[in-house]
Design a protein around this nucleic acid. Structure first.
Length: 564
RNA sequence: GGGCUCGUAGCUCAGUGGAUAGAGCGCCGGACUACGAAUCCGUAGGUCGCAGGUUCAAAUCCUGCCGGGCCCA
């Protein structure tokens, strides 16, 4: 049973009886300190002014009314400036075990998003090279948001926008063509703007092997071939890196396909017809100033070249035509200047408020406290795949998702590696594994968890028993809040808290030797904790192993890749 | 110069207008011949960048300033 909802319903009824209205800013939440009870409400303070009463007097009146109703409350108190604090009876908390047992892996699900189609677009890195660590943060965030939104009833589609048209792409084709001719022995100097990573050389070599006569083709055809091959190969690499990171997109959307289908021109015509685009100095402009931007922006340069903005508008136009009620874009923080422009464009498309842009701050990769260069030069730990293979997908994802996305993040490889035994992700996973280890041992001894709803719950009467119940009861609220504020870090913080309570319980209450009835009751409680932990980890895309493999410091060091 | 954003313990970071601001790491000191010590318990550590304002109540909202990061000119 939902404690918060129960309290709210009771409170609304009491207010009605006292002829008072429900204030919009009412908060019902667990107080910071346990001594103030299980849930706390601030209604009396909010109503005091209008009701011309002292907050505490008003709170006392509410408390008296609530005490008169039959209820699950064990205590109803007034404290501090006028808080109304309630404590639920033990038997109420035990009902949470039924909820968790019945729901199983779907525990925490809710349906505020029912009927809403949401698109999450993330990573969308230019296919000009492998993903780096910053893309990994966006990937973890986007994937986790999609999981959270699905858990709260939304219909979610994950999308990767492939920037395979435009200037950067021409440079990519040219770069491979240049390297290919150099490898064939031609004396051609490097050029300033070219991609020069080792992967370009690898692609050039492969293309030449696969198309031995490429050097005798007309140059434009050869460059085109180089470009197509390079994009295909790099995209395949990106997909593999994402798969290894347990991130999957439903749709891979090509910019080139928009251009080829004439969708850009369609959008231009649409804007022009509505007086929102105009020609000046040979260029086509979009009146973004009408939508809060600080100046108008170019869509098509006088050279005829399209801007990124032009295809991005057409792309978002397309998104809404596909029927999404809400679109979430995850961008690197260096694109923040682009947000007003894009929001303006969405408003111009008649979908004001339907786009949410989440900016992901920079990840600085450290090694022993020193910054690792993030240049295009091939460094050992520059790419996402290097980092994932070094620290593991679980540790990387948990770290990314345990911080607010708008804070810069430090990712110290050696710290994560050396301190891996103290890493929060292992702390949470270990709590899960610990329960399963106990369940297995109990099974061998012929002790089974009590059936949900059966008698025996009265044995779960210590403060630690009830603390675990309280924490589990909060999980659905945490999930809903994390989905609403698009903040997966709320889930990882919660999991750390629940794991801590489990470890504490373990150290204070022995389970298997407590006598059959008590042991069975405790096993039921702990198996519910494991279910909740697994459900939470699932939202982060982190595994919930049933046993942890003991890794010694030596083994950890021995498995680290050689560094040069 | 304009804009966005951040500033919380030695470090990395939580904190939805609410009560005595929290966690992990690090330091120091404790706890297994029982379910996994990847754990637990305890000590120390704070001008929530600074100054005003709004509010019954501000780390949280508003304004200005200082400092870091980024984008644009």
């Amino acid at each position: 049973m939902k404690a918060k909802q129960y309290f709210e319903d009771a409170l609304r009824a009491a207010l009605t009886r006292l002829d008072l209205s429900w204030p919009e800013k009412t908060l019902i939440e667990p107080p910071r300190e346990r001594k103030f009870g299980d849930y706390s409400a601030n209604v009396a303070m909010l109503l005091a002014g209008a009701a011309k009463q002292k907050p505490r007097d008003l709170a006392e009146a509410l408390a008296a009314d609530l005490r008169g109703q039959s209820s699950h409350f064990e205590r109803i108190e007034v404290a501090g400036p006028g808080f109304l604090n309630v404590t639920f009876a033990q038997s109420f908390w035990h009902t949470i075990l039924d909820d968790v047992s019945v729901a199983g892996a779907s525990y925490g699900a809710s349906s505020p998003g029912r009927g809403q189609k949401v698109q999450v677009e993330y990573v969308s890195a230019n296919p000009t090279g492998p993903l780096h660590i910053g893309h990994g943060r966006g990937a973890a965030l986007g994937d986790s948001l999609a999981r959270l939104l699905r858990k709260t009833g939304h219909e979610v589609s994950c999308e990767y926008y492939i920037n395979d048209a435009g200037r950067q792409m021409r440079i990519l084709g040219d770069s491979v063509w240049l390297r290919l001719r150099q490898l064939a022995g031609q004396e051609i100097p490097d050029l300033e703007d070219f991609y020069r990573g080792d992967y370009i050389k690898d692609i050039a070599g492969r293309v030449h092997t696969q198309y031995p006569d490429i050097l005798s083709m007309p140059e434009s055809q050869a460059i085109d071939l180089c470009f197509t091959e390079a994009v295909d190969e790099i995209l395949a690499g990106i997909k593999k890196d994402l798969t290894d990171f347990r991130v999957g997109h439903d749709v891979w959307f090509s910019e080139k396909s928009l251009v080829d289908a004439g969708r850009i021109k369609e959008t231009f015509d649409d804007l022009t017809a509505r007086g929102l685009a105009f020609e000046q100095d040979g260029a086509l402009w979009f009146k973004t100033t009408e939508f809060g931007d600080d100046k108008d922006r170019v869509l098509r340069k006088s050279s005829g070249e399209l801007t990124y903005f032009a295809s991005d508008i057409a792309y978002h136009h397309d998104k809404f035509k596909r029927g999404f009620d809400r679109v979430i874009d995850i961008w690197g923080a260096d694109h923040h200047g682009y947000v007003p422009r894009m929001q303006g464009a969405v408003t111009a498309l008649g979908r004001q408020g339907a786009l949410t842009v989440i900016l992901v701050q920079l990840v600085s990769l450290l090694k022993d406290g020193e910054q690792v260069a993030m240049s295009t030069r091939a460094g050992k730990f520059e790419t996402l795949s290097d980092v994932v293979s070094y620290v593991g997908a679980d540790a990387a994802r948990f770290l990314f998702l345990s911080r607010k996305s708008d804070s810069p993040l430090e990712f110290d490889l050696e710290l994560v590696r050396r301190k891996s035994m103290d890493n929060p992700v292992y702390y949470v996973q270990y709590a899960h594994a610990r329960v399963h280890s106990m369940l297995a041992k109990a099974r061998d001894a012929g002790i089974l968890p009590a059936a949900p709803g059966s008698a025996g719950c009265e044995h779960l009467n210590t403060p630690e028993d009830l603390e675990l119940c309280r924490l589990m009861e909060r999980f659905p609220d945490i999930v809903a809040a994390a989905a609403e504020t698009l903040a997966p870090h709320m889930v990882s913080n919660y999991l750390s808290e629940l794991a801590a309570a489990l470890h504490k319980y373990y150290s204070q209450h022995h389970v298997l030797s407590a006598g059959p009835d008590v042991a069975s009751a405790r096993l039921l409680l702990l198996s519910c904790v494991a279910v909740t932990l697994a459900a939470g980890l699932e939202l982060l895309g982190v595994s919930a192993p049933e046993r942890m493999d003991q890794v010694s410091e030596d083994a950890a060091l021995a498995s680290s890749p050689a560094q040069g």
